[in-house]
Design a protein around this nucleic acid. Structure first.
Lengths: 355, 355
DNA sequence: GTGAAAGCGCTAACAA
DNA sequence: TTGTTAGCGCTTTCAC
């Protein structure tokens, strides 16, 4: 009689190509061609067959397993050892498991050129991809439309949906905090040039944005988003004459703290340090780091939820203005004040720093 | 004429069920039954057919994709936010990519009960699994034989192959270092009860093993392998009267450092602290942590290599004695001396600690 | 238990 | 461009 996979699958009666053909009013051969070689059939016929197939829920027996059958999800991060991404990965993993999805992870080693390959590899395997802090140019991102959906984290694009945090507002909060402590000159130890977050945070430094009158901000340059990057920035910081510094992220802030200690600069006595992200270790270091807390778990959760359901309810602030054509969720951040920031001193730290 | 997937696949001529039947000397129908419903055919016939199918490399067209076709690998870790596992995950990822494998990651949230589920889920999806520091009982591990191979990291078992580090020797090195600095009483801030590493490290504390005559070791108890665990252990440490402490891992050591600072105990002046793992942050904290360096990247690499090729060449020390029936690679560790360990003082720290 | 034959779903060759 | 027809690989029915 019937054949193993033909008459039924999972107890339900399967629809034949014959059924589709009958509903579309064509022969089985035409239906076959319409679905397999669309260019070999007239547009009208093709539309008829496709509509019929969709109506009946027809699936080709030899086709790849349907997306819903072995649900999985890809996660691409620049550096798994960076606690920022480790926390996001954990959150994504947790949420994905709750939804019954497996998570494939790729580490791009902080290399923009290495991003393309794992993404391409993943697209064949997963039903959706979460792309964290991609460094690749926007044009390359545009290539990712079609196929399994790609959702951006920590970057906005005109071509893909995204979940981002309110970087500018985070900077504003940090500056307001430092200003209230009496600081009038704040340095910024920036991140990589290709980093979207960094350019956003620089935007927050603009007087037009933060609106604090008597505050001077000095970018120190671009540094790797790591401990070493912070170490490298510290001496420039001391030479800048600023009384406080905002770091691109917590790792950079850790490097700053280390080098400032080595240089004999007291924190927060002589210089205040503020980080960004609120990585777990931020409360472990000494002095504990004042930092802009990013809701890492919510970020990961929201990414998964939005990937699965574009209309998912995500706690987010209203995206200000229609800057992009693709929808993006904006998550609020909040400053966490700890020991590394304090009242400004009259004397600049460079005067007291020991060689 | 031929059919899409029948006459050839990837340019090679596919073998039919007919071919198998012919070689086995049976009809196509019998061959079909022998492979699909083995109980409906005699044992001899079945054996014939199976042998023929194997000889010709026959694969059922509608069967699941062969394991070799979309190579992937599962990685199970207790906590992705723990930098120890983050580093291993990164190393595994790097090696896997070089071999063209995708990596599926599962985080068991430090919960022994949560381990079983992701493992079961993964077995259906991947070609091999790397299981890091599993907490599950040995009996449960035994259930994992058969199916995609499971390789243990950081734990030895009679049932599965493994890659482990020389925990005891690490402890011995740390104790020898402290003894040379004049310490005669060393405390141990232990890890979780179910942790294999912890029990191994406790083994290294035994005088019979380390062979240092005038050295007393005091286990302080079992603590979570986290920063908080270290904080909790610190007060017990001070009360113990020991002049040095070996922590289960670096995170615990960080917690110890933090709490000792809060209690006003100088490190290494009054108390020396030694960690285990040499996590990246170990060189960032202040004072920088003396610790037993575990070759995390090599550990991850070796795990992948051994999974792919049981005979892979891995730099390892000779496993001492035939303790287990299953082969396991033993990776050497080496002490890294930094600022957190120094000469012992005559006065015990409890005398000077401020309330 | 086994083989011959009929049946399934699908695609490719062929003629119109 | 379309339907008819033939053919593929596999399974199951049916008789023995």
């Amino acid at each position: 009689m019937g054949r193993e996979n033909a008459p039924s699958r999972n107890g339900l009666t399967m629809v034949n190509l014959r059924d589709v053909a009958r509903l579309a009013g064509v022969s089985a051969a035409t239906a076959s061609r319409a679905l397999a070689q669309p260019q070999m059939v007239s547009a009208t016929r093709r539309a008829d067959v496709e509509r019929a197939a969709a109506a009946l829920g027809y699936r080709h027996p030899n086709a790849a397993p349907e997306p819903g059958s072995w649900r999985s999800l890809g996660l691409v991060v620049p550096d798994m050892e960076n606690p920022f991404f480790a926390s996001i990965a954990k959150a994504v993993q947790r949420r994905a498991r709750a939804a019954g999805l497996a998570v494939l992870v790729a580490d791009t080693e902080d290399d923009a050129l290495l991003e393309a390959e794992p993404i391409a590899q993943m697209r064949a395997l997963v039903d959706g991809i979460i792309l964290c802090s991609p460094r690749m140019p926007d044009a390359a991102l545009a290539e990712l439309v079609g196929g399994p959906e790609v959702l951006l984290v920590n970057r906005r694009s005109d071509h893909l949906r995204s979940v981002v945090i309110d970087n500018r507002d985070g900077v504003r909060q940090a500056l307001a905090h430092l200003h209230a402590l009496g600081h009038r000159h704040v340095a910024y130890a920036g991140g990589p040039r290709a980093s979207w977050s960094d350019s956003e945070r620089r935007g927050g430094l603009e007087p037009d944005y933060h609106g604090i009158g008597d505050l001077r901000t000095t970018p120190l340059g671009h540094f790797p988003p790591t401990f070493s990057g912070g170490v490298a920035a510290a001496d420039l910081l001391i030479a800048s004459g600023a009384t406080a510094v905002l770091a691109h992220n917590d790792l950079v802030a850790f490097g700053l703290l280390e080098r400032l200690r080595a240089r004999g600069v007291d924190v927060p006595g002589e210089l205040s340090v503020v980080g960004f992200d609120d990585v777990p270790a931020a409360s472990f270091v000494n002095p504990a780091l004042t930092t802009v807390a990013v809701p890492l778990d919510r970020l990961g959760r929201a990414a998964v939820d939005l990937l699965l359901d574009p209309d998912a309810l995500v706690e987010s602030v209203e995206p200000q203005g229609a800057e992009t054509t693709t929808p993006s969720r904006l998550l609020p951040v909040s400053l966490v004040v700890r020991g590394s920031s304090g009242p400004a001193r009259a004397v600049a730290p460079s005067a007291t720093a020991r060689a």
